[in-house]
Computed example of a mutant assay.
Amino acid sequence: MTTTVVHEYIHTRQINDHGSGVEWMREAVAEYYGAGLEYEAGVMSVPKYGYYLTRAA
């Protein structure tokens, strides 16, 4: 799981007018981009990032 700070920051960059039923997508996008930001910053290791990209929801 990405850090709470990064995850919540991603939410501040998301558009919130998609209507109901897509909350799961907002969470998935926040997790995906959060992991990418942490990997790029060197906070997340290569194995952990690989696991993140291939794990089942």
Rank of each mutant, 00 (worst) to 15 (best):
E8P: 02
A57L: 13
A30F: 01
G21Q: 01
G50R: 15
Y39F: 15
Y49G: 01
Y52E: 13
A28V: 14
A57S: 09
M25D: 01
V46L: 13
E27S: 00
V5A: 14
W24H: 04
T4M: 07
S20W: 04
E31I: 14
N16S: 12
T12V: 15
V6E: 04
A56N: 09
E23D: 11
Q14L: 12
G42P: 05
I10E: 00
E40N: 10
G19N: 02
A28Q: 08
R26S: 14
Y51A: 10
Y51E: 14
G36D: 07
H7I: 00
N16F: 10
M1N: 07
E27W: 03
T12H: 00
V6P: 01
L37A: 08
G42F: 03
M25W: 12
A28S: 10
R26C: 14
E23T: 06
V6W: 06
L53I: 05
Y32F: 13
R26Q: 13
T54G: 13
Y9Q: 04
R13D: 07
V29D: 00
E8S: 12
A56R: 09
G36F: 06
A28L: 13
V22L: 10
M44I: 14
P47L: 15
L53M: 09
V29K: 03
Y49S: 00
G21R: 01
T12N: 07
G21D: 02
G36V: 02
T3I: 10
E27Q: 06
G34D: 03
D17E: 08
Y52Q: 10
A56S: 13
T3V: 12
T3M: 03
E31N: 12
Q14W: 06
E27C: 01
A41V: 11
T3W: 01
A56H: 12
W24E: 03
H7G: 05
R26G: 11
E40C: 00
A30R: 03
Y33S: 00
A57Y: 12
E8N: 06
H11N: 07
L53V: 10
A35F: 05
S45R: 05
R26L: 14
Y49K: 02
V6F: 07
M25V: 14
T3D: 08
Y49N: 01
L37I: 04
V43M: 11
G50L: 08
T4L: 09
Y39E: 11
V6M: 04
Y52L: 12
T2V: 15
L53R: 04
T4E: 00
S20Q: 10
A35V: 11
Y33W: 06
E23S: 07
M25C: 10
V29W: 01
T2L: 07
H7F: 06
A56K: 11
E8D: 09
R26E: 15
H7Y: 08
Y32D: 08
G34Q: 02
M25P: 04
E40I: 08
Q14G: 07
Y33C: 07
H18G: 11
V6H: 03
T54H: 12
T2F: 01
E27K: 03
Y32I: 12
R55N: 06
Y49R: 02
A30D: 01
A28E: 08
I15P: 03
G34Y: 02
Y39A: 15
M44C: 11
R13Y: 14
I10S: 02
A57I: 14
T4V: 14
H18P: 03
H18Y: 11
V46D: 14
I15K: 05
Y39G: 12
D17G: 07
W24L: 02
A30L: 06
G50M: 13
